[in-house]
Amino acid sequence: MGKKWARRNFLRTVGATVLTLPVMTTTAAAAQADFVWPVSDHINSPYGPRGSGYHYGVDIDGETEDPIYASRAGTAYAAEDPGGYGQYVYIDHGDGYVSEYGHVNSYDVYDGEWVERGEQIAGMGTTGSSTGVHVHLEIEHDGSPQSIPGDKGDWVTQGEPIPKDFPGIGGTDTGNYYSWPTYSRGDQSEGVYSIQYLLEEQGYNLNYHDGIYGSEVENTVESFQSSQGLSVDGIVGPNTWEELYVTVYDANNDPYWATYGAQHHLRYDQGYSISVDGYYGPETEGAVEDFQSNAGLTVDGIVGHDTWQALMDL
């Protein structure tokens, strides 16, 4: 069987998404998310459009001098922006990622200090342009703000994984990390074929299975997002993928359209010479197991969360 291995090196930033808190209680789960919430309280201003501008982070409520903890390990710096963040801390994580914590009242780090995830870095405050005590959390990748999930009023818990896969972060706890890509109208790729087949599996009837993200896909995605309580933006990002994918695991429990989608992706994107017929037989199982082995995943022949994610990311 032929194979290709080329890591995706980009993921477009999208707008705010609805906070969904999966059951993640183990160290492995934390490793999947990598970034964790820096405080415990309610979100008072989510990521996305706000007033006449755009809010490139999330604001989380608290009380003066409530401790703020590092969302991820890295080198910390104390800084000041009187017209915006006020006093703030930023952490360089060393792989293109920087996290920023705005409006702090006090510092618990010095410039150039290495901090571990969960280590206290500052006390909450109202410095800069702030209408109340809160921390502004922002995450950037190579200078581009990354969308952070959460709606106004959502409760977040310090130390819990942020339910979002950032580029190059996430996936399994084996050291082989994969991320959900983001697709929107105008895209044309094998990933869009998978979206179309998975929407069919979810009960939607599409006229086209052509790998083109047109109005039909966008409108159907919006309907699916609405049915799942997600932010309705017509964009298939990490939170939408989490609800959209369907596990494919054997011929006795064979979801026709999801199997078709996995086969199509294995054949036309990964180069496996298999039939694309919607039937999960030995040929498909062998291709799945070979793909999993090469991707560093658990070899079980099941196209579940991590295998779907790797298929989309490779």
Rank of each mutant, 00 (worst) to 15 (best):
R7V: 09
R7Y: 10
R7N: 06
R7K: 08
R8A: 05
R8C: 03
N9S: 15
N9D: 13
N9I: 15
N9V: 15
N9K: 13
F10D: 09
F10K: 07
L11C: 11
L11N: 12
L11V: 14
L11D: 14
R12C: 04
T13L: 02
V14Y: 11
V14S: 15
V14K: 14
G15P: 02
G15M: 04
G15V: 03
G15D: 08
G15N: 06
A16E: 02
A16C: 03
T17L: 02
T17M: 01
V18G: 01
V18Q: 00
L19H: 01
T20Y: 10
T20S: 07
L21E: 02
L21A: 01
L21N: 02
P22K: 01
P22F: 03
P22D: 04
V23D: 15
V23W: 14
V23H: 13
V23T: 13
M24T: 12
M24N: 09
M24G: 15
T25E: 14
T25K: 12
T25H: 12
T26Q: 04
T27M: 15
T27P: 09
T27R: 09
T27F: 15
A28V: 09
A28G: 11
A30H: 11
A30F: 13
A30M: 14
A31L: 08
A31R: 13
A31Y: 13
Q32D: 07
A33L: 08
A33I: 13
D34Y: 12
D34V: 10
F35G: 03
F35H: 01
F35T: 03
V36F: 07
V36Q: 04
W37Y: 09
W37K: 02
W37N: 04
W37I: 10
W37A: 04
P38L: 06
V39K: 03
V39E: 00
S40W: 03
S40L: 00
D41G: 05
D41Q: 12
D41T: 06
D41C: 07
D41S: 12
D41Y: 08
D41L: 09
I43A: 05
I43D: 00
N44L: 06
N44S: 10
N44Y: 03
N44C: 04
S45I: 02
S45R: 05
S45F: 05
P46G: 02
P46Q: 02
Y47R: 05
Y47S: 05
Y47F: 15
Y47G: 01
G48M: 00
G48W: 03
G48I: 00
P49G: 06
P49K: 00
P49V: 05
P49T: 08
P49Q: 01
P49E: 04
R50S: 10
R50L: 13
R50K: 11
G51K: 05
G51M: 03
S52N: 13
S52T: 15
S52Y: 09
G53C: 11
Y54I: 08
Y54M: 08
Y54P: 12
Y54S: 10
Y54C: 06
